[in-house]
């Protein structure tokens, strides 16, 4: 029976970001949620468990305040969670996240069969954590997956590529990054949410983990993008309508 690891990221819920008067982004009232595609990854792990049995383990790295993320993840079905936790684990780069997750997998979750990640995160969408994690672990990585199955020690995956659909197989253990159309993630039931805190969680502090690489990038500033609008007014008579059409043609809008 397979052991499936499902990785998730706790991201800012964009609907809470406000724009300040000077155009700066105001994060003061934001809330967080499990990144959308990671919900698909968790759901897919649960779907496979329903067919093949085994165990589903949720894995994340984050700041100590992110305990709610663990409950959220566990309310979606996984049996246990692993939490690499430190105040410095906020705003990690993909390379750092992958290094952390790999360290946890190597030290605490080996052997395993399949790792499921979302194709990209809801905030950065760098699409790097999955492939980098596979690289650290020395296992095959399959991206853009819209259908997945396990058969005789192999993972069979349907990849959506530009030209069409590619079906690939890889020997387990392997890592798969999933697209949102792979399934419809559940909305957890009340009981699932209330029981989530009763499931085992292994928290791993910075001191328990090998050092992670320094970030490659530094964020200097974040501001809102401005759309410049022409704000031209048109009347409703024939001449004005023609002028309107010409204006659209000039902008190649029609």
């Amino acid at each position: 029976m397979p052991t499936i690891i499902t990785c998730f990221k706790w991201v800012v819920d964009e609907s809470y970001i406000r724009q300040g008067t000077a155009g700066e982004l105001d994060f003061s009232v934001v809330d967080y949620r499990i990144s959308d595609y990671d919900r698909n990854a968790i759901e897919e792990a649960m779907r496979l468990k329903a067919i093949y049995g085994g165990e589903v383990l949720a894995l994340t790295a984050g700041v100590p305040e992110a305990t709610k993320s663990i409950k959220d993840a566990l309310s979606r079905g996984p049996d246990r969670a692993f939490f690499a936790v430190d105040p410095s684990f906020g705003g990690l780069e993909p390379a750092q996240t992958a290094a952390l997750l790999a360290a946890v997998v190597k030290a605490h979750i080996t052997p395993y069969d399949l790792i499921l990640c979302g194709e990209g995160s809801g905030d950065l969408y760098a699409q790097q954590v999955g492939p980098r994690l596979a690289e650290h672990l020395g296992i095959p990585s399959i991206s853009f997956v819209q259908k997945v199955d396990i058969q005789e020690g192999k993972v069979i995956a349907e990849r959506r590529v530009e030209e069409g659909i590619e079906v690939v197989a890889a020997t387990l253990p392997a890592l798969v990054t999933v697209l949102p159309d792979i399934n419809v993630p559940r909305i957890p039931g009340v009981k699932d949410t209330l029981m989530a805190s009763k499931k085992p969680v292994l928290s791993l502090k910075k001191e328990d983990l090998p050092p992670i690489p320094e970030p490659y990038l530094q964020t200097l500033e974040m501001k809102t993008a401005k759309l410049s609008r022409a704000c031209e007014k048109f009347g409703s008579d024939d001449a004005e309508i023609n002028r309107f059409l010409n204006a659209l043609r000039k902008k190649a809008a029609i």
């Binding site: 809330d31 949620r33 305990t67 709610k68 409950k71 959220d72 309310s75 909305i187 957890p188 009340v190 949410t193 209330l194 989530a196 805190s197």
Partner: peptide
């Protein structure tokens, strides 16, 4: 509680 916040969101 975190559970109440999650249930509200759900």
């Amino acid at each position: 509680t975190e559970e109440q916040e999650l249930i509200r969101k759900n």
